[in-house]
Amino acid sequence: MSVHKLEFPDRQDGIEKAEPLGFRPLYRQVKAIFVRRLVDGVWAPGEGLPSESQLAAEIGVSQGTVRKALDELAAENLVVRRQGRGTFVAEHDERRILFQFFKLVPDHGERRFPDSAVLSIATGTADAAERAALDLDEAASVIRIRRLRSLDSTPLIVETLSLPQQLFPGLETGPIPNNLYSLFAGRYGVTIAHARERLKAVALNPGDARALGVAAGLPALQVDRVALALDGMPVERRLSICLTEEAHYLSDLR
Rank of each mutant, 00 (worst) to 15 (best):
L228M: 15
A57Q: 13
S251C: 03
L98D: 05
L221P: 02
I192S: 05
A209T: 08
L156E: 11
A122L: 01
I176Y: 00
L253V: 14
R238V: 03
P169Y: 07
S2L: 03
M1P: 10
P164Y: 08
G86T: 07
S141A: 07
N179F: 00
P45M: 08
V35E: 12
L136V: 03
R96A: 06
M233V: 14
Q100G: 05
G207Y: 06
N178A: 15
E236T: 00
A211R: 01
Q12V: 12
L161S: 08
R112T: 13
V30F: 09
S240Y: 04
A75K: 15
A74C: 06
D10V: 11
R111L: 04
L253E: 14
T160Y: 00
E236Q: 10
D252K: 11
R187A: 14
D231E: 13
L136K: 08
R85E: 15
A32W: 06
G48Q: 15
I157E: 14
F101T: 03
S240C: 07
A211S: 10
P155T: 11
D224W: 03
E197P: 00
Q83A: 15
G46F: 10
S182A: 15
E72P: 08
L104K: 06
P25S: 09
P25E: 10
G124I: 05
D13I: 07
G207L: 07
R95W: 02
Y181F: 15
V226Q: 09
V42G: 02
M233C: 02
Q166R: 12
Q222D: 09
Q222K: 14
H194Y: 11
G48D: 02
A140R: 08
L250S: 11
E110W: 03
E91C: 05
F23P: 00
G64R: 03
T154L: 13
D107S: 04
V223F: 02
T123S: 10
Y249G: 01
I97V: 14
F34E: 10
L6I: 14
E72C: 13
P219E: 10
R96M: 13
D152M: 01
S62F: 13
K5E: 09
S150Q: 12
L49P: 05
E94P: 04
P106H: 03
P106V: 00
E172F: 00
Q54Y: 08
E47R: 10
H248P: 00
L78C: 11
E94K: 15
T154S: 12
K17C: 04
A122D: 12
V226W: 02
I157P: 01
V202W: 06
H248K: 14
K68S: 09
V142G: 08
A211Y: 04
L156D: 07
L104V: 08
L26H: 02
V42F: 03
V118Q: 01
V79C: 06
T123K: 06
T160I: 09
S2F: 07
R131S: 10
R225T: 15
E130G: 06
R11V: 11
E16L: 14
G41M: 08
F113E: 00
A203S: 09
Q222E: 15
G86V: 04
D231Y: 02
A193Y: 01
V89K: 00
H194F: 06
G64H: 11
G46H: 10
L212A: 09
G186N: 13
A229E: 09
H248D: 01
G48P: 09
A209F: 11
Y27A: 13
D252T: 07
F88Q: 04
E172C: 00
L171R: 02
E76M: 10
